[in-house]
Amino acid sequence: MSVVDQVREASAPSSGTRRRTVGSGVDQVSLGWTIAATAGVVVASIYFLAPVVWLAIASTKSGSQLFTTPGFALADWNLWTNLENLSAYDGGIFWRWAMNSVIYSVVGSILTTLVCAVTGYALAVYRFRGRKVLIAVVLASMLVPTTVLAQPTYVLLVNLGLNNTYWGVLLPTLTYPFGVLLAWIFAQDAVPLELVEAARLDGAGEVRIFATLGLRLMSSGLVTILLFAFLGSWNNYMLPLLVLTDAELMPLTVGLTGWNQASITIPSLQILTVVGSLLSIVPIAIVFLTLQRFWRSGLTAGGLRG
């Protein structure tokens, strides 16, 4: 299975200890190169930051000043009014969407992580019939394009009577083969079989060993899965768009794009879409950037192992 080799190949190009780059070879570096490199990085940073900065500035403007004042210049401070209008619009539907997004993401990512953790743990700790088949299936399914599944999944959910329900959006997101693969790798690293055996000799049951020992030992790896699952649910768009017809159940992505569409005929919605977009970015940015250490270590780990 060549895909497996590819996956294994990924980032660790060769063995060797991790290298420190800071300061290495500074003396050989010419001033011209430093200036050119810094300029390049500054330009790139401006490109990547500008839309977000614009969004923050635009959120403080009134609906009419959004169109009449220069984009990156502050105008009258209207943020609080905008927030009030946002909260009042359509009986506070925005906060309903925000709550839905939180429910989909928090419940979804926790359940996903648990499913992945228990499966990966089983693959690492036990030798059972069908194990190899399961591993092959997990690896192969990573090549299945997920958005292509959206339409038939929708058909399936209609048949199950789960369309237009919370479960209809939640359940499909729980199937996360890559998470299983990660959990398996983490479990191999973190759960010593001797420890499992010792717990068994102490009379602990298999479920208890997993719940008290396995989960704890795997916890740092599971944070990575949790974060990616959280981001995946928070960004989920095509499936909820297909599955949900009831505005009360929609996540922020579907709700806000709906507003954006409607703002062609209802201009006052434009500024609300702007403020709503800003609010939808803030929590995920904070979560991702504060937990950077965790998922970054997950990414670097391939190289660290050396």
């Binding site: 590819q6 996956v7 294994r8 190949e9 990924a10 980032s11 660790a12 990573m142 890559f178 693969l181 990660l182 790798i185 690293d189 990575t224 990616f228 997950g298 990414l299 780990a301 391939g302 190289g303 192992r305």
Partner: peptide, 9 residues
Amino acid sequence: RTVQASRER
């Protein structure tokens, strides 16, 4: 996903 999986290697 693919790079994380590299630990497997």
